[in-house]
Amino acid sequence: MSTLQPAGSGAQFHSIDGVYNFAYLDEQTKRMIRRALLKAVAIPGYQVPFGGREMPVAYGWGTGGMQVTASILGVDDVLKVIDQGADDTTNAVSIRRFFNRTAGVPVTEATTEATVIQTRHRIPEKTLREDQVIVYQVPMPEPLRKLEPRETETRKMHAFAEYGLMQVKLYEDISRHGEITTTYDYPVEVNARYMMAPSPIPKFDNPKMHAMPALQLFGAGREKRIYAIPPYTKVRSLDFNDYPFEPQQFEDPCALCDAKGVFLDEVILDDKGDHMFVCSDSDHCRDRRAEGHMGPRAREAAEKGYGADE
């Protein structure tokens, strides 16, 4: 999809509605957030507390990611926003509109064109580049919170690298179910030091975090925490030597673009249990179809003489 033109004229853009600053936040706040980001990059995986602001969208709806995005966005940036891997989900649309309106930056649905990608719950299928930044929206930044509700205690556990308790949780999974049953927000160890919540991405995406060329930033608005993974940093999903980490696998390819080894959404087609699996990354799927790839459903539709996705 082609780049959308800005609402204001990019370079001269200063405010919207004559009231708000470029990208909504005032410059003092942005500086404060950028200081927190620098600290986060310097200590990979460490949760930096920051004076999070109220945003004009509800807590839990991406306020952390939006504050990070607002603080790093410049007039030359091209923004992509996805939710569940797709650009057209309502919340992604809403956040994209927000920045298009308040910052006037061009927005895009193409992963390759974007310089900043704000995401909720997915990492794009295409490998990100060094000149890109991915910003994750994080609901619960503390990976240990489900095991230990007290902030005073979890901060000590991080400070002293006391992570045995998480291993106990994985041990319990295996002894009860024969495997580790965590499927999303699967905890990782960053740079061989801090345990970190990757946000609720499927564990399928965990390997993409390891040694990623792009800078990864994480913003938790309600919990007021920022953390980061610098480019090319070691990210290890927790496991046992004899029960190694395993990402999900899908048996069938995407029904529309025939992609294998990608994360798929299950789409219910009728109330008789007929369903199909399609790419969760809508941009990736569209590109593949444009290149002429055809999944089983798309082929079936083509043979019958009508389009698969319109």
Partner: peptide
């Protein structure tokens, strides 16, 4: 209550990637 209602209401946002992961498991 701004934080609380935000986080409770965010359950209305799509979670189908996480739900799909749970289905597979």
């Amino acid at each position: 209550n701004v934080e609380a209602s935000g986080f409770v209401s965010h359950l209305k946002l799509p979670h189908y990637v996480d739900f799909q992961s749970e289905l597979v498991m």
